[in-house]
Simulated assay, not measured.
Amino acid sequence: MSRTFCFEAIGTSWRVDSSEPLAPTHRAELLRIAEDYDALYSRFRADSGVTALAASGGFLPLPLHGAALGRLLRTLHDLTGGGLSPLIGERLADQGYDAGYSFVPTAPPAPARAWDDLLAWTGDGITLSGPALLDVGAAGKGQLVDLMLERLVTAGHENVIVDASGDMRRAGSGSITVALEHPYDSSSAIGTVSLGSGALCASASNRRVWGDGLHHVLDARTGRSVDTVVATWVLAEDAMTADGLCTALFLADPDDLAGSFAFDFVLMYSDGRARYSAPLAGALFS
């Protein structure tokens, strides 16, 4: 890749590498896609659709891609026994990961409210029967990666990578080697994987830590941060699926997910053990 476009969006750093230069119109389009997505789903913005739902409930219309996100989140919710839920937003805020980034818990951990009691996510939008704070971070960043890459491919870019701080999707011939960042040392890697056309996403409990035992991966069944898994990596066809599965692997056994999704994974536990799917048996350094 010889052309790079770097920018900030949805609170993280992005990098787009392509074999051909991105036209100014294409760069502007990527920024617009990110802004539109953030304006819908950000729980950190006072003017977002999700914030409006948190204030009054009701209906939030979504673009066409909203249906796919809702289907994935519902499937992962069911496969994890309710451990993964967009209704975890208010529990994250209670634990200090709020719109003001106070990082000060204001309530003890508690289960998220039940999906079927409050939330209907349909093909045209989200309906909440009452005020509730949603969080789509389990798979939203991955979907935004997909939207950007698909836009560039439609525009004629045949070799391109969209990388949102480690959640990436690639289109093109051949493959690249990607390091798996050590969850306790960002300057080193625990292994490498080969990425062809497809997505690689990662999640680590040390990425957003603000207190003893407090981090951003909460189990919606308890409202507590997960303490058995420290990092996950997933290879899948698209980044939304890979991102969602990375979160789900903190909450469910890989075998419980394999019947519904095609993916490969590396999973690191807090006791130092690692688990991986058979095709990635050589991914970790000895």
Rank of each mutant, 00 (worst) to 15 (best):
G172C: 12
A34I: 07
S48D: 10
G125A: 14
G191F: 04
L245P: 02
P63S: 04
M1F: 10
S203L: 12
P61L: 07
S48T: 03
L53W: 07
Y101P: 07
A28C: 00
A93P: 02
C246W: 01
D163H: 09
S19K: 01
G166A: 02
D212L: 12
T4L: 14
T228R: 08
D163Q: 08
I88C: 11
D219Y: 08
A204K: 02
S203A: 15
D238Y: 00
D47T: 11
L214D: 15
I10R: 05
S186Y: 11
T122M: 12
C201Q: 04
F265Y: 15
D117S: 15
G213E: 09
A202T: 11
C6E: 11
G66T: 13
S48M: 05
G83D: 06
A34K: 01
L62H: 01
L152S: 01
F59I: 05
C6H: 05
G156D: 14
S175R: 13
A199W: 01
L195D: 09
S270I: 05
G174A: 12
A120G: 06
L249A: 12
T247N: 13
A107D: 14
V217W: 05
Y269G: 12
P131W: 08
L128V: 09
C246V: 03
A9S: 10
P105L: 11
G282C: 09
S18Y: 06
L180R: 02
A202F: 05
T241W: 05
L87Q: 02
V50G: 03
L119A: 14
N206I: 05
M268N: 10
S197V: 05
A202P: 04
T192M: 08
S277K: 10
R221M: 12
T192N: 11
A236Y: 04
P279T: 10
I176Y: 03
V16M: 04
L79F: 02
A28I: 00
E158A: 13
S260M: 01
L180T: 01
L30W: 03
D38L: 02
G82W: 01
H65D: 15
L235Q: 06
I161E: 15
D116W: 08
Y276E: 04
A107N: 08
R273G: 13
A231L: 11
S173K: 14
D264T: 05
R32E: 15
V230T: 15
D185T: 07
L128C: 14
S19G: 11
